[in-house]
């Protein structure tokens, strides 16, 4: 009697699709925004463990186009002071924490610089900034 491989292949494909979808959902902390898109970008695509994302977005709901909203990952918006406190607590839990600043390219530099200062205030020495990466074939 020959072994029937068809159900095995079916289940294998379903599991593959399932885990690929789950992996996509884990990037929920990356809120939709217009990231800087430099030509010949040297931004590297990398999956960093123990990373914290600070999102700096344009507040679309307000009339002022320069209004900025800060949030830590997928959390609701909060002040930079609150984010700095969260960073301090997270750094106590894991000293090797890495911080990524994701800022909308339409923001003024002063808003992003304020977020950088909040990071530096916690003595985090390496800063990662999100930008559109060049597609490599």
């Amino acid at each position: 009697m020959a072994f029937n491989f068809t159900p095995l292949i079916d289940v294998f494909m379903l599991l593959t699709i399932f885990f690929m979808l789950v992996a996509r959902f884990t990037s929920a902390e990356q809120l939709a925004m217009m990231l800087p898109d430099p030509p010949d970008s040297l931004a590297r695509v990398s999956q960093m463990p123990e990373r914290v994302v600070i999102n700096c977005r344009v507040n679309e709901s307000q009339a002022d186009p320069d209004a900025v909203v800060y949030s830590l990952g997928p959390n609701p918006p909060e002040s930079l002071g609150g984010i700095s406190d969260h960073l301090a607590a997270l750094q106590q839990q894991s000293p090797n924490i890495k911080v990524v600043i994701r800022a909308d390219r339409r923001l003024r530099f002063e808003h992003v610089r304020a977020a950088m200062q909040a990071v530096a205030r916690n003595n985090i020495e390496v800063l990662h900034v999100a930008a559109i990466a060049e597609e490599r074939g």
């Binding site: 530096a120 800063l127 900034v129 990466a133 597609e135």
Partner: peptide, 13 residues
């Protein structure tokens, strides 16, 4: 396009 990271060292505060 995929999202990547640029890395820089921060001065000590």
């Amino acid at each position: 396009k995929p999202e990547g990271l640029l890395t820089s060292e921060m001065p000590k505060y």
